[in-house]
Amino acid sequence: MKAAVLAMGPTGFGVLGAMGLALSCGAAGAFVVHVASSCPLTANGSLGGFDLTVAFNKNPLVCYDPDAHIFYPCDGGLLHGVATFVAFILNYNATWVQRAEARRQACTELAAQFWAQTALRRTPPQVRIVPIRISNDPDTVRLICHVWGFFPPAVTIQWLQNGLVLASDDTELLPNGDWTYRTQTTLRASTAAGSTYTCSVWHSSLEQPLQVDWSPNLSPGMMAQVAVAAMALTLGS
């Protein structure tokens, strides 16, 4: 019998043995057998189906039909004979059908909980304004409003000058690795004293807009802190 690696627990050795016996007469070398199941959710969070597959070297070999409660060969190539034999073994042992049904039941029970913890959750954004000096224009500064860590992705950002709404560029949403999003928008602002610029962020997680102000009257110490924060944001993204 050829060498094998099992990724489906000790109860799967019967299937592995059947595969090994079926493949022992061929030229197959080491192989990996694993069981994969999935239950996709629809756009409203309801269960969209259930799939369970016994895979051989990452290729589907035997699939489960949840309506008929049987396993069937889903490999129509060179291993179709092996797939038919393995499907017969799985259907002969009621434990495998029970295991498949237990996984489908788990999907049904956990779908609502998973949906609530992911798609329906509300994570408020964080906001920071970073000023960038323009070397050839000392009377103008480029303000970058960084908005990050929010979910769902829908967000509205406005620039205000002394409380009056200004036009701003469209923002591009970028996903983070923790199911949150980030974006930024820029504004050219005057360095003349007397104006306060505000980045106002509207998001479904907030009861009122989150607003952060910037003024050209910042002290050198505050400017240094902003510069450090800008570097941290750049490195963090």
Rank of each mutant, 00 (worst) to 15 (best):
I129V: 15
S168C: 14
P209K: 06
A224S: 12
D139G: 14
G77T: 05
N91M: 07
A224H: 08
A111K: 01
W214Y: 12
V86I: 15
C39Y: 01
L164A: 14
P216D: 07
Q184T: 03
S24M: 14
C107M: 01
L235N: 08
S190H: 07
D65K: 09
K2W: 13
W202L: 12
C63F: 00
E109S: 05
F150I: 04
F150H: 10
A224L: 10
Y92R: 08
R99E: 12
T185Q: 11
T198F: 04
N93C: 04
T191N: 13
Q211V: 14
R104T: 00
A229N: 05
D213I: 09
R182N: 08
R121K: 12
F85K: 10
L21C: 08
R142Q: 15
S24P: 00
Q158G: 03
I157Q: 02
P138Y: 01
M8A: 13
I132M: 08
G163N: 05
L41M: 10
T185R: 05
P60C: 00
T118A: 08
Y72H: 10
N59F: 02
D75W: 06
G76V: 00
R121T: 10
G177Y: 05
N93R: 02
G81W: 09
D139I: 05
T234R: 13
T140K: 13
I70T: 15
G163R: 04
V15K: 01
N44A: 03
R122P: 03
I89T: 02
V35S: 13
P152T: 01
P138S: 10
Y64A: 11
W202C: 05
N93Y: 04
L218Q: 09
V54Y: 06
P124K: 06
R133Q: 15
G20F: 05
R133T: 14
T156V: 09
V130N: 02
R128Y: 07
E207K: 05
A189W: 02
S200G: 07
L78R: 09
L218E: 09
T118S: 14
T180D: 08
F56G: 03
P124I: 04
S38P: 06
V5E: 05
C107E: 02
V141L: 14
S168D: 12
R188D: 11
V15G: 02
A36I: 13
P131G: 08
D139A: 10
E101S: 08
N91V: 09
A36E: 15
A30C: 15
G26P: 00
T198S: 15
G81Q: 11
F71A: 01
H80N: 13
P220M: 04
A7R: 11
A55N: 08
Q126Y: 12
Y92P: 00
A22S: 12
I144L: 09
S204A: 12
T118L: 06
H203P: 15
A55P: 00
S237P: 03
Q158W: 06
A4F: 13
I144W: 03
G177Q: 06
W159S: 06
G12I: 03
V54T: 09
V141E: 04
A22K: 01
G76K: 02
R133E: 13
F71R: 04
L218M: 07
F114A: 13
A227E: 06
T118H: 07
